[in-house]
Design a binder for these strands. Sequence first.
DNA 1: GAGTGGTCTAGACCACTGT
DNA 2: CAGTGGTCTAGACCACTCC
Lengths: 262, 262
Amino acid sequence: MAKKYERIADELRQHIRAGRLKPGERLSAETTLAKQYRTSVPTMRDALGELLAEGLIDKRHGVGNFVRKPPQRVERTNERHQWEKDRARAARNEREKTGATEHDTGLTASDLVFKARYRETKADEDLAAAFAVPVGTRLLERVYRTYPRDGDAAFSLVCSHLVHDVVAANPDLLDESNEPWPGATQSQLHTIGIELDHIVERVTARPPTSEEAEELGLQKGVSVIVLRKISIDTEGRVVDVSDVIMPGDRTELVFTTRLERW
Amino acid sequence: MAKKYERIADELRQHIRAGRLKPGERLSAETTLAKQYRTSVPTMRDALGELLAEGLIDKRHGVGNFVRKPPQRVERTNERHQWEKDRARAARNEREKTGATEHDTGLTASDLVFKARYRETKADEDLAAAFAVPVGTRLLERVYRTYPRDGDAAFSLVCSHLVHDVVAANPDLLDESNEPWPGATQSQLHTIGIELDHIVERVTARPPTSEEAEELGLQKGVSVIVLRKISIDTEGRVVDVSDVIMPGDRTELVFTTRLERW
DNA sequence: GAGTGGTCTAGACCACTGT
DNA sequence: CAGTGGTCTAGACCACTCC
C-alpha cells in the first residue's frame, strides 16, 4: 500500500534524524542509491524530492546531494514596528547603530550587503485598491535586497510602494543613493510629518516563481511566505504598501497580540 | 533554454487566466494533452504538477484534471483574540451565538460539523519548553476539527495543550462532551479564574505530512501554514499552547499591530 | 574527462471512478 | 467495463562541477 518512494524517503529521514547521516555529508550518487534501494533512478529521485521540499537535503547539480545543516531560522517579529517607531525620531548616529535585518538575523552590518533600487510606477488595480487611490496614480517603487557577504542567496525580497506625490515633499526620499537610510521607512516618513498609527500584515504561502526561487536559492518544492505589510498613519491614510517574500524553510514570523485587561 | 514542462505550464496558465479554460472545466486526458503538446506523458505530468501546486487545477484520480474555482480564502485575524476575550465573560446564550470558525469563514453553524477529542498526554521536550514545566508533566491534549457539512476536507487541524493539573480545577474542562464550549478557550479558562494578557503566534510554512494532506484535502505540492499560538495569562504563565495547521492555498493570516503615539 | 544531477522519452501495470 | 490518473521502470542525452 505504502508508495515505494515514500518508504525510501522515510528511511532516509530516519537516518538523518538519528544522525547516521551527518549534516554536510554527501549522499551516494543517485544511481548508487537506486541500486541500494532496489529501485529505478526516477523513483529514487521522487524520494529525494520529498526530503528536498522539507529542507532536509540540498541538491547541487553536478556535485551531489548533501544533508542540510539545520537551517538558522530568521525570525521576524511584529514588535519590530514599535522598535522602528521608537527610533524614527532619534538622532542620526543613534539610528545608524543597527538596522532591522541585523535585528532579525543577529548578524552585524559588516556581514551584510545591502541593495536598493528606486523606480517610478503607476498603481495597478491591486495597489490602487490598497492605497484607496485611482488606478494609474504615480507611485514610488522601492526594491530592497539584503545578502550575507559570503553567501549568494538573499534573505528576503522586499518591494515597497509609496504614493509619489506624498513623499515628493522631501526630494531626498526619491533618491535611492540615500539608502540605506538609517532608521528605515518610519524615519523617512517622519521627515515629511507622517506618524504611523498601526500596521496590517497579511500572510500567505505559495510556490515561488522561478525568479524568486533563483534569488532566494530555494530548492524545488520549497514554498515562500508572502507578507503584505500595509502602514496606516494617524489620519487613517495608507502610506506604504510593502510585499515581502521570504523562504518558507528558513523563516519564522512572530506576532504578539496584547489584550485589554478586564 | 526554458524547460519544456515550464513552457507547457506557462501556456496552460495563460489559458486559465484568460478564461479560455473556465473554472470547473475538465482538461483533456493526460495522454491526449501529451500528444497535443508533442511531449511524453511524464513531462506533461510535470507541467500539470506546477499548476497543481499553485492551486490552479484539481487532479481527481480516475476522473480527470479540472480547472479550479478561485478558492474562497479563509481569513484568520489576530483581532479574534480580543473578540474572544470580550465574549468570554458574557452570558451563555450570548456566547452561543457564534463561534470563531463562523467568524472567520462567514458560514453559519448549520453549515459546519464540529468534532473534539480530548486525551491525556505527557509533555515532550518541545511542549515542556513552551510551558516552562518539566518533561513528562501531565497535559490535556484537545484535538479539534471543523468540516463544512457537505464537503469532506477540514478547514484546519487544531491541537491545543493545557496543563492537566491547572484545568482540573474545573472537571467540566476535562470532558470532551462539553464541546463545543460556547465562547471557546478563553471562556473555559475564565471558569478557573484565568485571564489572558497576551498571545504570541509563531508562523511557519512546510510541506504537509501525508496525514495532513489527506485530512485537509491538499493536492500534491501545496504547503501548509503552521501556526503555534501561545497564550500567556496576567501572571505571565503560559496556559495554552495550540498548533494550528492550515492549507497554504486557501489561508490568509491577518495581523494588526497598533503603535504607541508620539 | 569523469562523475554528478537534470530533463525527457516510451511504455508497463495498478488503482480509482463512473456507467 | 472503459477511461482516467498514479506509480514505477529503463535508459538516452544534456548541463554542471571539479580535477
